[in-house]
Design a protein around this nucleic acid. Structure first.
Lengths: 209, 209
DNA sequence: GTCTATAGGTGGATAGAC
DNA sequence: GTCTATCCACCTATAGAC
């Protein structure tokens, strides 16, 4: 019943631990609950009720809640990575890449959900260590992808900013996560959109002298 | 045992419901727990243990957890408003005001805490209605104060931005809340500081043509 | 794999003595 | 106001039948 760490291999290898249909359904339901209510805001009973099964059968697939939580982060991370790769295939223009990136966040919010990892980040002090590590890995990977896009944009003159790409990437992640948090408090996606617009506007305008 | 709404009067009137010393101690302890673990991450038992009293005595001061939660938001909001008023007295320069504002957030983070209202915003779907309303009131007031500072800065040429002051204010609140969220996940306040710097930098640089 | 049944603990909350 | 004692609902988790 050891709680498995989240390895980079596991994140990228499509063959790793192909989950059963039942496990997928559990993950889907738990993900929705975690994104709306938080890790401490949902229980096995909630998941079981939504799926029409018993709590005991959930424990067969995910022995402990820590296992379930770790699997949630792992899958969310993996899906997100694939979405970033899809963006890279769709366009080479840094400006468009960034807009697609923002659309990823937007689609989550339109489901009246918070980013899973942003949500769990709030509760981090109450989470098992492997989940804490998984969150940081997710943010790291977001940052790395953004850095590449920002540096590319800077090089070809699509973006302008004074700090390092790393610093700007951290600022963008923070602003988007915070924007989701606040927008959801008002049930108003427009609050997210104005933040996204400001971020894009600053990138195309800032630093001119 | 009706859960009291958060009224604007109550927020501003220093005579309203002067809490007992015991109630203050409970609020102090509960506030710390809520800021680090979230509303669903702490219990009356946690508060009681830290204070060396029994759960029952907590219920005397705050009959239900919803009462306690509402009181937490109310007090946090009131203290924050006073801090904003103090900034207005300390300086008239929009740039300095904004830096002091950011320092407010920074001091919270240096206590290894998240902004109470940012934390509760994540859990909003699980909160009683009066608490939800209290959160929005807090964000509204932040926004209003920032709008005044931003408009002032724009007028005297200290700030430059293309959107409305309202939109820029929302972007700043989102970025600071998100920056706290992520910085705390790494236990690294520097992650907050780089976001703050970017925000200030964009305000002084953006929009030049 | 999923079920029934249940263990063992903790959650918020109340009654009533002091 | 604070205590002891207690209630009941819910939590995570396990045993064992099917």
């Amino acid at each position: 019943m050891a709680i498995s760490r989240i390895s980079k291999k596991k994140l990228r290898d499509p063959q790793a631990d192909a989950p059963s249909e039942a496990a997928k359904a559990i993950l889907d339901t738990a993900e929705g609950l975690a994104q709306t209510r938080g890790y401490n805001g949902f229980s096995y009973a909630d998941v079981a009720e939504q799926l029409g099964v018993t709590k005991a059968s959930l424990h067969y697939h995910f022995p402990s809640k820590a296992d379930l939580g770790t699997a949630l982060i792992e899958r969310y991370h993996r899906v997100f990575l694939r979405a970033l790769e899809a963006i890279d295939l769709r366009t080479n223009e840094p400006d468009k890449k960034l807009r697609y990136y923002i659309e990823l966040y937007d689609s989550v919010l339109n489901n009246e959900r918070m980013c899973l990892c942003g949500m769990l980040a709030a509760e981090i002090a109450t989470l098992p260590i492997p989940m804490q590590e998984g969150l940081r890995l997710f943010f790291d990977e977001n940052e790395q992808w953004l850095i590449a896009v920002l540096e590319d944009g800077l090089r070809i003159g699509a973006f302008r900013f004074k700090e390092t790409a790393n610093e700007r990437a951290r600022m963008i992640v923070a602003a988007l996560e915070g924007a989701m948090l606040v927008a959801r408090s008002y049930g108003d996606p427009a609050r997210f959109h104005v933040v996204a617009s400001s971020l894009l506007s600053d990138l195309s305008q800032a630093g001119r002298t």
